[in-house]
Design a protein around this nucleic acid. Sequence first.
DNA 1: CGTGTGATTGTTGAT
DNA 2: ATCAACAATCACACG
Length: 125
Amino acid sequence: MKTRSQTTPKPLKTVALAPRPDSPKRRPRPMPKPAGKGDPRAPKKPPTAFFYFMEDFRKTYKQENPSVKSMREIGKACGEKWNTMSFEEKVKYYDIATEKRAEFEKAMIEYNKKKESGEMSEESD
DNA sequence: CGTGTGATTGTTGAT
DNA sequence: ATCAACAATCACACG
């Protein structure tokens, strides 16, 4: 349970885990959701092909590098290898992601319907 | 005890 | 067409 109301602002970032020379934050996250504003029924994005590849890669990576703590390294390793992967090899992950997208798309349709159905809070006041 | 942060790319909704 | 934010993962640090 996330006590989002009680969550500490967390101004400090203990990034002493990995000695990164300088990695510019590509994704400046503004902040966690301020308050209920947003799409409560908005279907979450399905994992991309990259993530599916990561699932498999993670296991392999741990086998090859059992001493590796985890994470960010894998992420980088994944991305690097991902770029070296042949399209045909990636296709198999794309295929999975594609199916998920299909479901996601359907969910999005219903989501839109629900929005129209009862939640039209967009009134000019 | 709990949760945010870190990086990877892809995907998709919104403008 | 372009932007921006979010999708999982997992150890660790901080209050």
